[in-house]
Write a protein that binds this DNA or RNA. Structure first.
Lengths: 142, 142
DNA sequence: GCGCAACGTAACGAATATGGTTGCGCATGA
DNA sequence: TCATGCGCAACCATATTCGTTACGTTGCGC
């Protein structure tokens, strides 16, 4: 899948917006230059972040993208939930054989462990904020 | 990313082996019947689990697959590490722009949070064993 | 009102990953 | 020696992602 770099790119973009915060809105073309991709790709991704109310966009000249919250208030958990809609651990492609005792019950049995695993992951992601990353990136630049 | 059902299928297979433990080795064809897929797919997956020393295989008539450890000793963390070789959160496809301060440092800044997130996930997965799942599946069957 | 700048979105294609299938070689045990 | 079952490579179908083009829409400034 698999290579789904949405999460990493989303964090990159938000960190960039935090870096430029306070000035003019940032255009998707500028962002695309930093990520090294196409503006449309960025807009597609930012549409997800806007649904999650992490950013807002403005059309017209002088328009672009801005954070709706201080970077300190945005955790990686928020980003994860905004862009990673699919299941962490997908189930079988086709359903397992219901006539086999294990096949019949395995998916139900996995529900709780999978949910707990996702919670544990999100709990840890909640400990890092975009502000943390921005500080780290700026420290590297020296 | 996505659909990588290897993890779920691997757990299914191990639970099935635990269910049949004590008797004859189980053939990949029989397992494929429970998972509802092709024997070759099962053998490909079991090859990974064998590398991790979770199962052993035997050729010839009466051959098949068996667990190398009691189900109580196999955690979902072991399975995860055996079949999920790739990064949890892939980085950018192409490298970000090194002339942008954020692009230059974001991947390095993400190293620690990503590693901690993976650890948290694995720690939680380590709390469930194949024996737990087998008990759950058998309880459902009643 | 006009025009430009920028987003919004649909449509298409290339590249890649995954899962399924076939085929054939090899080891093993009766 | 022969049938059984694994080992493995090759191939195809499908799905997803990412990139790109194209076109519509919005909002600001003149």
């Amino acid at each position: 899948m698999k290579p789904n770099s949405r999460f990493t790119v989303a964090i990159h973009v938000l960190t960039l917006l935090a870096h430029e915060a306070g000035g003019e809105p940032v255009t998707s073309e500028y962002i695309a230059g930093s990520v090294n991709t196409n503006p449309v790709v960025i807009r597609r991704l930012l549409a997800l972040l806007r649904q999650a109310k992490l950013v807002r966009s403005q059309g017209g000249p002088g328009g672009g993208w801005q954070l709706t919250q201080p970077a300190r208030a945005i955790t990686l958990r928020d980003v994860y939930r905004a862009v990673q809609g699919d299941q962490l651990f997908p189930m079988h492609a086709g359903a397992p054989n219901p006539r086999c005792p294990v096949g019949a019950g395995i998916q139900a049995a996995l529900g709780a462990p999978y949910a707990e695993a996702r919670l544990a992951l999100e709990r840890q992601l909640g400990r890092t904020t975009v502000a943390d990353l921005l500080r780290d990136v700026r420290a590297q630049a020296r």
